[in-house]
C-alpha cells in the first residue's frame, strides 16, 4: 500500500483531442496526486471541459492515455468509468427534474448495488411486496450523504424545486453516492453568490477529507487559490504552467494568458 500512496491517482500522458482542425487539447501530460485538490484553470476555450469529457468517457481521445490508480483507463463508456471510481458534476446543472432529492442521490447508489438488470429484476420478483434489503441500505447511505451536505431537510422536495446553490450541492451528493475515489467538479461556484461560494470551499475540503481526490475546474480565483494543493493552467489546449498556488500566481505565462501581453508586468 505504501507504493500506492506514491502513485498518482490519475496520470495523463500525451492526451490530444481535435475537433476538425482545432486542437481542443494538445499533447497534455499531467499527474494528479492521491488525495489532492488539483485545480485546472485557464481562459474560456482553453480545453477544460474537453479535459473532463475525456476523463469521464463522454468524448474519446485521438491520442494519449489516461492511467487511473496505476491501471489504464480503457473503459469506453462513461458508466463503466463511474463504476471504476470516477464521478463528476456538470457545469450546467444536470439533475433529474422529476425525482426527489433523496431519489436523486439513490440514482448515484444504483450502480454499486444493482450492477446488472438481472439483480434489479430478481429483487423485484423474489419479494413480491415490500422493500428490498439493498433499497433500505441505499436509502440509509443517501440520507447520510444528504446530511453530510446539509440537504437532509429537503429530501422529499423535487430536485428542480431547490434553490440554485442547493442544486449544486445535490449534484455533488449524487456524484459522491457512486463512492468515487476521484471527483471532477466542473465550475462548482458558477452562479453562486459570494456567501454560498465561501461555504463551498469548506464543502470541497470536507469531501477531500473523506478520501476523495478532487479535480476542480473553476473560474473563481479566490476559491481556486484558497483550497488547491496544485494548479494546472491550460491555454489553447496546452499546458502553460503547473505548480502550487503561489508559483502559479507569479508565473509570467499565466499572467499573460489571463491579462494579455500589454498588461503583463
Amino acid at each position: 500500500m505504501a507504493e500506492l500512496a506514491n502513485e498518482p491517482c490519475l496520470a495523463i500522458e500525451g492526451l490530444t483531442k481535435r475537433f476538425g482542425g482545432f486542437y481542443a487539447l494538445n499533447d497534455l501530460t499531467m499527474a494528479v496526486a492521491q488525495g489532492a485538490i488539483h485545480a485546472v484553470i485557464g481562459p474560456n476555450g482553453a480545453g477544460k471541459t474537453t479535459f473532463f469529457n475525456l476523463i469521464t468517457g463522454v468524448l474519446t481521445a485521438d491520442t494519449g492515455r489516461i492511467v487511473f490508480e496505476g491501471r489504464l483507463l480503457d473503459e469506453a463508456r462513461p458508466s463503466r468509468r463511474t463504476v471504476r471510481g470516477i464521478a463528476r458534476t456538470f457545469q450546467n446543472i444536470r439533475l433529474f427534474p422529476q425525482l426527489t432529492v433523496l431519489e436523486t442521490v439513490m440514482i448515484g447508489e444504483h450502480c454499486r448495488y444493482y450492477p446488472s438488470i438481472l439483480k434489479g429484476l430478481r429483487d423485484l420478483l423474489y419479494r413480491p411486496f415490500g422493500e428490498a434489503e439493498d433499497e433500505r441500505v441505499m436509502r440509509g447511505n443517501a440520507l447520510e450523504l444528504l446530511e453530510f451536505l446539509g440537504l437532509a431537510d429537503q429530501r422529499d422536495q423535487k430536485a428542480s424545486d431547490l434553490p440554485y446553490g442547493d442544486q449544486r450541492k445535490l449534484e455533488m451528493a449524487r456524484a459522491l453516492a457512486t463512492r468515487p475515489r476521484l471527483l471532477l467538479l466542473d465550475e462548482p461556484a458558477a452562479g453562486l453568490n459570494p456567501h454560498e461560494t465561501e461555504h463551498l470551499d469548506e464543502v470541497i475540503t470536507r469531501i477531500r477529507d473523506r478520501g476523495v481526490t478532487i479535480i476542480l475546474v473553476e473560474h473563481d480565483m479566490g476559491l481556486v487559490m484558497g483550497i488547491s494543493d496544485r494548479i494546472t493552467v491550460l491555454n489553447f489546449g496546452t499546458r502553460i504552467a503547473d505548480g502550487n498556488p503561489r508559483e502559479i500566481q507569479d508565473d509570467p505565462a499565466v499572467i499573460e494568458a489571463y491579462l494579455g501581453e500589454d498588461e503583463a508586468p
Binding site: T56, V58, R77, P78, S79, T82, V83, A87, R88, F90, R94, L95, F96, P97, Q98, L99, I107, G108, H110, C111, R112, S116, I117, R174, A175, T178
Partner: peptide, 17 residues
Amino acid sequence: DSIHQDETAAEVMGIDV
C-alpha cells in the same frame, strides 16, 4: 426514470443506459 429525464447524466452516474 433517470434515463428518461437526462440520459447523459444517468450514464455518467454509472447507470448502464
